[in-house]
C-alpha cells in the first residue's frame, strides 16, 4: 500500500495527533468504518469507542474517544473529539468506579435536562469500561 491516509485528531483545546498512516478504523454512529486512501467524502457522527490506527496490518495505536465528529475526504480523515486517551492508559478499576458513580448520579437526577446529560456521560463511561476490558481488540 503506497498511499497513506492523513489522520488528524483534534480536540477543542489543541491538535492531539496529525500523522500519515495506512488505515484508520473509526467507531461511527452507525457502525465502525475503516478509512483507506481515496475514501468517498463522508461526514459521520462518532460514538464513544476506540479509534484504531493501522500501520500495515498491525494496530499501532488504540485511542478511546468520548464521541464527536468525523470528516473524511480524499486526503484522509479528521476527527473532532472532546478528548482522547490511549486504551492501555485506562485504569479498568477506575473506569468501573466512574461508571458506577455516574449511574448513581443518574438515578438521583432531578430535571429532564440533567438526566439527558448524565445518560450521555453514562454511555461514555460504559464504552470506556468496555474498551479497557478488551484492550487488544
Amino acid at each position: 500500500m503506497a498511499e497513506k491516509v492523513a489522520f488528524e485528531l483534534v480536540a477543542p483545546e489543541r491538535v492531539l495527533a496529525s500523522e500519515e498512516v495506512d488505515m484508520v478504523v473509526v467507531p461511527g454512529a452507525e457502525g465502525d468504518f475503516g478509512v483507506l486512501p481515496l475514501h468517498a467524502p463522508l461526514v459521520s457522527l462518532v460514538r464513544p469507542g476506540v479509534v484504531r490506527v493501522f500501520e500495515g496490518d498491525r494496530v499501532v495505536r488504540r485511542l478511546f474517544v468520548a464521541g464527536g465528529f468525523a470528516s473524511v475526504d480524499e486526503k484522509g480523515v479528521t476527527l473532532l473529539v472532546e478528548g482522547a486517551e490511549p486504551v492501555e492508559a485506562i485504569d479498568l478499576e477506575e473506569a468501573r468506579r466512574r461508571l458506577r458513580d455516574l449511574e448513581e448520579d443518574l438515578e438521583d437526577a432531578k430535571t429532564e435536562a440533567e438526566r439527558r446529560r448524565l445518560e450521555r456521560l453514562v454511555a461514555v463511561a460504559r464504552a470506556r469500561v468496555e474498551a479497557a476490558e478488551r484492550p487488544d481488540l
Binding site: 454512529a29 468517498a40 461526514v43 457522527l45
Partner: peptide, 22 residues
C-alpha cells in the same frame, strides 16, 4: 463533492450545533 452523511445531515447537525456554540 458529493458528501455522504452518517446518519443523515439533520441528525448530525443536532449534535454539531450545540457543540459549535461551545
Amino acid at each position: 463533492a458529493v458528501w455522504e452523511f452518517e446518519p443523515e445531515a439533520r441528525l448530525i447537525l443536532d449534535e454539531l450545533l450545540p457543540r459549535n456554540l461551545g
